[in-house]
Design a protein around this nucleic acid. Structure first.
Lengths: 230, 230
DNA sequence: CGGCAGTTTGAGCACGATCAAGCACAGTGG
DNA sequence: CCACTGTGCTTGATCGTGCTCAAACTGCCG
């Protein structure tokens, strides 16, 4: 399950926000405490409350960060794709993960040892500043999330999600390719799967979008942005 | 509006998590860039999007951190009381405040200059670690907030709020003294004022609590903790 | 006394959850 | 090759939480 890093991951990781603009020696130093982790689809990486031994970087695949209730319902907080770090903040959070993490699809991760990383951080304040900035950005996202859960309705959150994830495709049209099954996206935007289905149907009926499996064509981006709908 | 610090604030601030266990010289160094701010009840301290010039510590009073929607609704994210810092994270967040801040009651704050503080932080990585830990704790709170907004109902959130804020009073009974008007608490727990009123009434009718103005007597803490209610 | 802000209460409604059934599709095994 | 099963998605009917709109009540201050 754990082994040495591939050349490819090694280079990509070096470009991540934590390690960019860094001398080779320094980077090699911390990479000696990193290891590659292969994890099959659906498997749990860690649970809320587990002791934090490392943080992670995604080389390939998709990781689902989520909370779950005693009743078994789960709320997806974030989906982490290739090139991104996660759980860096947990290192400073009293030693326990505050969320669960599972592989949404089979994934290749790099685990960076926590204590080594902290020791390495402590050597240079400018390294800390990177991390502070990264954590701030994540806090900002969380605040935005709270904001939209309280101040907006389900439809609004779906529209926001679609606009945030839309990209022009090969033929120049604005498209969204859902990164995970609809039920996961539903949890991500804070509604039940049935509701997401109905919302998509409604927007489809209004002529705003066109849904085909996990691909959504944005037919009228401006109307979506206004959000004026009843 | 802005002046030198009182002796009292100076000493209390030194005990805050950011500056505790610090040599006098170091502390004096950063305090030369701090100033006292008196702010009347209701007044806005900064708005979302304002450039960040400083972060704050509360000497006396209460500060309301909130988001507001285009429609004018507002969501209270946190109420910051005496002895606590706020907006430290904003320093690293691209230079703009992600929330609004207003004095809930007349307050005395200490503003600590951002650029000086960052320069001071950069001198020693252990200083950064304090901040990293503080920010992690705040992130954890935000995650919990998202969790309870999505996975729990209004009643549950009220119960949680009551239990979190309850303290044994003089006569040995468990009490909650609401730190702000009910409408603000309502926003804090993510319901409308009318709904909070009804929820309190319901719990009162069930014999769980007793409400008298802004004081709430917890009559059966165990039942509240179970939360088994319909 | 009037005016005002905060709170309560009432009636109706809307959004989204729940429960339940049906459908499409892929994988498995007889 | 065709049931059989499981999974994800959709659709339908109903229900409940909490919001909206509106009115009345309270305490407080000018």
């Amino acid at each position: 399950m754990s082994s040495n890093l591939s050349e490819r991951d090694f280079l990509a990781l070096r470009r991540g926000y934590i390690f960019s603009d860094m001398e080779d020696g320094q980077f090699l130093e911390i990479m000696s405490h990193a290891s590659s982790v292969e994890i099959p689809a659906g498997q749990l990486l860690f649970s809320q409350g587990d002791p934090v031994k490392a943080f992670y970087w995604v080389g390939e695949g998709l990781v689902r960060l989520f909370r779950s209730s005693p009743q078994g319902d789960e709320k997806v907080l974030e989906l982490i794709g290739p090139g991104r770090f996660f759980a860096e903040a947990a290192l400073f959070m009293g030693g326990r993960f505050p969320v669960n993490a599972a592989a949404q699809v089979a994934s290749r991760l790099v685990a960076i040892d926590g204590t080594s990383f902290k020791a390495w951080l402590a050597q240079d304040a400018s390294r800390c500043f990177r991390l502070l900035a990264g954590m701030s950005a994540r806090m900002h996202k969380l605040v935005n999330e709270i904001d939209s859960l309280t101040l907006m309705k389900g439809t609004d959150r779906l529209l926001q999600y679609l606009l945030d994830h839309s990209e022009p495709d090969a033929s120049g049209q604005t498209m969204v390719e859902l990164e995970a099954p609809k039920q996961v996206i539903a949890s991500r935007i804070g509604v039940k799967p049935e509701t997401l289905s109905r919302l998509l149907h409604k927007l489809s009926g209004l002529g705003y979008i066109e849904v085909k499996d996990n691909r959504i064509l944005i037919k009228d981006e401006d109307k979506l942005r206004e959000g004026g709908l009843d």
